[in-house]
Amino acid sequence: MTDKRPCKVCNFTRQKSYGLVVPSLDELKAKGCEFLGFSPSAPVTVVLEDDGTIVEDQAYFLCLPLNTKFMLLHEEETWSPLRRMDGGTAWMARDSVLLETDAVDASTAEAPWLDLAQQLKQDLASIILMSEADLQMLVDAPRPELAFALGFQEKKAEDLQETLQRVLDRREEERQSKELLQLYLKAADKEDRQLEEPSQGGAGDVDVPDGMEVDSASGFMSRTLMVLKGKTSPETRLSTEDLQMVVSRGVEAMEQVLGWDRTKTSALLQACKAELTKRLEQIQAVQSIRSNTLMDSSQQSSEKSAEQGIKTAAQGSN
């Protein structure tokens, strides 16, 4: 009779794990199903928990070290490695993604958003820590596949993508507000310097961001080209100076720069023109407010000087 061997068995989420002492692979399947709550008639596959190797041979089972940990999988369940989370301070089990058999092998390479979907499935609050690129990847993910990976109804997946898009839009609005404020402060500082040094008025220096390379063929910053070729509203991610440069180039020149067809390039330029017009209107509104404020201040100063002159004249006549 074969000696009994101590081993461990877990389900594919690694949330349930039990110690067993069994003499054979068949006994491991039987007892494992019983402890993990599987139906005795349900077909299961035994794999090594640490690397996913399928164990089907009794002789191989007997050659494995004592206390080897096995994982029992149903037909639609797949093995996935244990993921390191929280900067390496904790190990957390992650649910395997249930996929159709013919899509399993290429899923990781063809759908990089799957790891992000698993983070959301584990904790929806992880949205806060995701980069804009990660959020955009989830927004662009095929909705039926995203719903399947998350275990959601398709309508719920649609709501999630709309929420992620709102998060992206809010971040973009915050960035635009910051850029507008920087433009206002820059214009105000330039105006103050011109008032202080009227004799030294001249062309201002052109600021070039540190570490940003200029593409010699197109004349655009490398970051600008990356943003222009982005998928969602690239015009909102460009500075006002970049928008002016894009609009001034025209459709034909931008076709060559981007390598796009006329229709797609024209649509981008129209969007850039609209965004540029909106920003210029905002800048004009801010400058108008500032001019009115300066005018009111100057008028108050003049009135105060006139009042002081009248008082001085009255004192002299007395």
Score class of each variant (00 low, 15 high):
Ile283Asn: 00
Ser301Asn: 08
Arg5Thr: 06
Gly250Ala: 10
Ala187Arg: 06
Gln165Cys: 03
Thr2Ala: 08
Phe61Tyr: 08
Asp205Val: 13
Pro43Ser: 06
Asp102Asn: 11
Leu160Pro: 00
Pro40Ile: 06
Asp115Gln: 14
Met245Gly: 00
Ser41Tyr: 05
Ser96Ala: 03
Asp159Glu: 15
Asp169Ala: 15
Leu73Met: 08
Glu252Tyr: 02
Thr13Met: 05
Thr13Asn: 05
Pro81Thr: 12
Ser96Phe: 04
Leu73Pro: 10
Gly88Pro: 02
Val55Leu: 09
Gln200Ser: 14
Ala103Ser: 09
Glu191Gly: 13
Asp123Lys: 13
Ala203Lys: 14
Leu25Arg: 11
Glu56Phe: 01
Gln244Ile: 00
Gln256Asp: 06
Ser239Phe: 01
Ser41Ile: 14
Arg193Gln: 06
Lys156Ala: 08
Lys156Trp: 00
Glu145Tyr: 15
Ala103Tyr: 15
Lys4Asp: 02
Leu25Asn: 08
Leu36Gln: 03
Ser248Tyr: 02
Glu76Asn: 09
Glu34Trp: 10
Glu252Val: 09
Gln122Thr: 14
Asp86Thr: 06
Ile289Ser: 11
Arg170Glu: 05
Ala30Tyr: 07
Glu252Ser: 03
Ala109Glu: 09
Glu49Ala: 09
Ala117Pro: 06
Met71Asp: 04
Leu129Ile: 12
Ser248Met: 10
Asp205Gly: 13
Val46Asn: 02
Met245Lys: 03
Tyr60Pro: 06
Leu120Val: 04
Cys7Phe: 04
Pro209Glu: 01
Gln270Cys: 12
Ile283Tyr: 00
Pro23Glu: 11
Met295Asn: 05
Glu100Gly: 14
Val22Asn: 01
Arg171His: 01
Val247Gln: 06
Gln15Ile: 00
Leu120Lys: 11
Val227Lys: 11
Glu154Ile: 07
Cys63Gly: 13
Gln118His: 14
Asp26Ser: 04
Asp26Gln: 13
Thr163Gln: 14
Gly32Gln: 05
Asp51Glu: 13
Cys272Leu: 03
Thr89Asp: 13
